[in-house]
Simulated scan of single mutants.
Amino acid sequence: MPPVLSDFQFAPRFDVAVASRRGAGPVQRPENQDNFVVIDVAGQACHLLGQELRRSRVRGWPAGHGRVAVLDGMGGHGHGREAAEAVAAGLLTVPACRSAAELARHLDVLHAELQRHFAGQTGTRPGTTLTMLELPAGGAPLLYHVGDSRLYEVGPAGAMPLTVDHVPATAAALAGRIDQRGWWRQVHGEHAPQIAQAFILGNAFSNPAHLSDPLFELTPVNLPSWLCHLPDRRVLALREDAVYVLATDGFWSCAAPDAFVGGWPELLAGSPDAAAMLERLFGAIESPPAGLQPDNLTALVLRPLAQHGDETALPYHAPVLKHS
């Protein structure tokens, strides 16, 4: 079983751990089509290539800047692993960005370049989710999100999704065909392996009858009022009393995903560091929850460290939360 990786340099601001596995339980996918990217504040990077860990150093990476991401290649569309690998490798070439707009410009270019790269291959164009955080030195994190992987804030208020899934139910919500309750039930109360947009693949938001090449950004202007606070590309304000989980959808591909994810605050409570939290997340999915479907599993935990006048990072203990 691949180990949890936590030997990164993100202090004194963050504690980071990541792991990617082919699946959980006796029935698993034939290969791991997920991926991840970590570039720490010293420019040390890692991602998966051929399902194996590849470490490198990003030349010219500015000191104090970081980048983390999870990706879920779409195997049903062919070349899912290769698509996720191509985007992961591409993220190592994107320069450090200090604004959401700058990051989006670079990723739009990468999206178009990889569409051209895969255009000559047979079969349907591949795709991958991409949920990432850019961590500028001394600045607030920047979110960039495409697909149905997610970013969660796990803290006193529970396990709160900070991203909107790019799925048919969201397209229906944009068109006013379903309300907030119906959207939540379809997206968080059950799990369906359908997607309306992915990196490289393109989007079905612009025209549901036709796959469009560009990526369709969900913004406060086009999202319904009850989702408009969760645009795809934005600056994040992180809480010191919470931890942040970037994960692919294998972690909620079960019969009652909202109930399973709702247990994460109590599950992570008291963990001494990000690596221990990640071990608990993988341990819970190994149990497994009722109705778990075979899928790849990738998760990254980012734990903000308490900032003090002497810049000493103190140990963090998640609050103990109870669920009804």
Score class of each variant (00 low, 15 high):
290 A>G: 09
180 Q>L: 00
210 H>L: 14
183 W>V: 01
31 E>S: 07
322 K>W: 12
150 R>C: 08
279 E>G: 13
131 T>W: 03
257 P>M: 01
253 S>L: 05
144 Y>L: 15
15 D>W: 11
60 G>E: 05
173 A>E: 05
27 V>Y: 03
279 E>T: 15
197 Q>F: 12
230 L>A: 06
226 W>F: 15
8 F>I: 03
278 L>D: 04
303 R>P: 15
183 W>Q: 01
148 D>P: 14
283 G>T: 12
33 Q>I: 08
49 L>R: 13
190 E>G: 15
265 P>Y: 05
81 R>V: 00
65 H>P: 00
36 F>L: 09
92 L>T: 14
19 A>S: 14
89 A>C: 05
21 R>Y: 00
173 A>Q: 02
268 L>H: 10
194 Q>E: 15
319 P>T: 03
246 L>F: 07
129 T>A: 11
173 A>K: 01
208 P>I: 10
270 G>C: 11
249 D>P: 11
201 L>Q: 10
139 G>R: 13
18 V>K: 03
76 G>A: 08
150 R>G: 04
261 V>F: 08
40 D>A: 07
204 A>V: 03
51 Q>T: 09
190 E>R: 15
11 A>N: 04
79 H>M: 13
247 A>T: 11
60 G>C: 11
64 G>P: 07
64 G>H: 08
118 F>A: 06
248 T>H: 07
